[in-house]
Simulated scan of single mutants.
Amino acid sequence: MIRESIGAVPLRLRARRFRVSAWRSRVRARVPGGPALPHYISQASLHGQRGRGFYRQLVRAGTGARPGAMAEWGERLAGVHGVLLDISGVLYDGGEDGGAAIAGSVEAVARLKRSGLKVRFCTNESQKARGALVGLLRQMGFTISEGEVTAPAPAACLILRERGLRPHLLVHEGIRSEFDQIDMSNPNCVVIADAGEDFSYQNMNKAFQVLMGLENPVLISLGKGRYYKETSGLKLDVGAYMRALEYACGIKAEVVGKPSPEFFKSALKEMGVDAHQAVMIGDDIVGDVGGAQRCGMRALQVRTGKFRPSDEHHPEVKADGYVDNLAEAVDLLLLHSDK
């Protein structure tokens, strides 16, 4: 039985390559509410009920974490059966060279999938077609399939078909292929997404002219984020340009993507989990956290991607928890979700 003192950990536990001396010297990840826990512990083979039990003992006794703080996390995450993961800013940071995986995120996703929890990816990515995005993530080492990703462009195509809408597209070249089967003759709506360098005056004005020429103008926006983070820094997102067209045309855009409740509900349906059994993990306090909570889900914000310290003091949205990165979120989920 493990005693409260780190130095009293039995030899049979130390034999599992978790040497006492290393606990103090190889500090790489924080346990909420307590001292540091070496990140390499969470990367080890702690799978299945036996592994989870050993990990709990390490957290509770070996690290000296405050029992009250761990109990709070237990209450927040108890009964979670499914996890929705944002992609940009949680799994990786994009960039002109394709971007880079965030430290620990590849293994964190793998651990989640091995745990038995249901996992789905929910993204507002609108510069890359879903297949291209999945291909990029696979190159980085993530185990992910196209069918596991809920993305706004395919969802928008369903809406266009159902309502007989013919769009004028103001989108990035990377997602135009998603609309190949959509009739775009004589447009009766505008679809706007993160067009990047294609957000020129000429292109914005053309979208404005199409909308002003319609008796009942329809503007569909793939997400409404303010900004996102790439390896080179922060970038303006589609929300700023969506607001400009709303203001100029005197209309309200229909948002397809986070934080739209319909978008979250679609992802939950695909995952086969009720909202109260799911948790969203994202870097956007409004789009990810606020949107998920309005649907009845729990939500954690990571301190990676677009996260800003002021997010923890947002006047309207408070996450169910804040974690340094996806790896820490997975540590907590595997510790508490089965309670």
Rank of each mutant, 00 (worst) to 15 (best):
H313T: 10
A65Q: 03
A36K: 07
E328P: 06
Q277C: 15
D320N: 15
M204Y: 02
R3Y: 12
I41A: 11
H172F: 06
E316F: 09
L13W: 12
I102L: 10
M212T: 08
A267R: 12
I220G: 07
R30L: 11
R28L: 13
G89S: 12
R60I: 07
G7D: 07
P38Y: 06
F18Q: 06
E96V: 12
A100H: 01
M204T: 00
R52T: 09
E246H: 05
A132D: 15
F307Y: 13
E173I: 02
Q209G: 02
L334N: 14
K229I: 02
A329N: 05
C249R: 15
L333N: 01
G104H: 00
V323Q: 00
G94Y: 03
G141K: 07
F263I: 01
A248N: 10
G225C: 01
Q49D: 14
R243I: 04
L300N: 07
R52Q: 05
R12D: 04
S221N: 05
S25V: 09
L170D: 01
S25K: 14
G51Y: 04
S185N: 09
A240V: 15
L326V: 02
I182W: 07
G272T: 07
L234M: 15
Y241P: 08
P154H: 06
Q139G: 14
L332K: 00
H172R: 09
I41V: 15
V20Q: 00
G321I: 14
S232Y: 03
M70W: 15
G74C: 01
P167G: 01
P309E: 11
G135I: 02
V134G: 01
I2A: 01
E72H: 10
L117V: 08
R308C: 07
L170Y: 02
H39C: 12
Y40Q: 05
G64S: 10
S177K: 08
T143N: 13
L236M: 14
G290P: 06
W73L: 12
V302I: 08
D284L: 11
R24W: 00
A15P: 00
G291M: 01
G282F: 10
Q202K: 07
G62N: 13
A267V: 08
R19Y: 02
D93Y: 14
N325K: 13
V149A: 08
G223D: 00
D86Q: 04
C189A: 05
Q181G: 00
P309Q: 11
R303T: 05
V256M: 09
H81S: 10
F179C: 04
Y92E: 03
R243W: 09
K118M: 02
A129G: 05
S185R: 02
A44I: 09
V279M: 04
P10V: 00
T143F: 13
L165A: 11
K252W: 08
T143D: 14
G305N: 13
A15W: 05
A240C: 10
R294Y: 11
L219C: 06
D93F: 13
S200L: 06
G33L: 02
N186Y: 04
I175V: 15
M204A: 05
I175P: 11
A29Q: 13
Q301N: 03
I192K: 06
M242Y: 06
S5Y: 06
S185E: 03
Y227F: 15
E75P: 02
K206G: 00
Q57M: 15
A22H: 14
Y247D: 08
V27Q: 15
L219E: 07
D331M: 09
Q49P: 04
H168L: 08
V210K: 10
V273D: 10
I2H: 10
A155Y: 04
V210F: 07
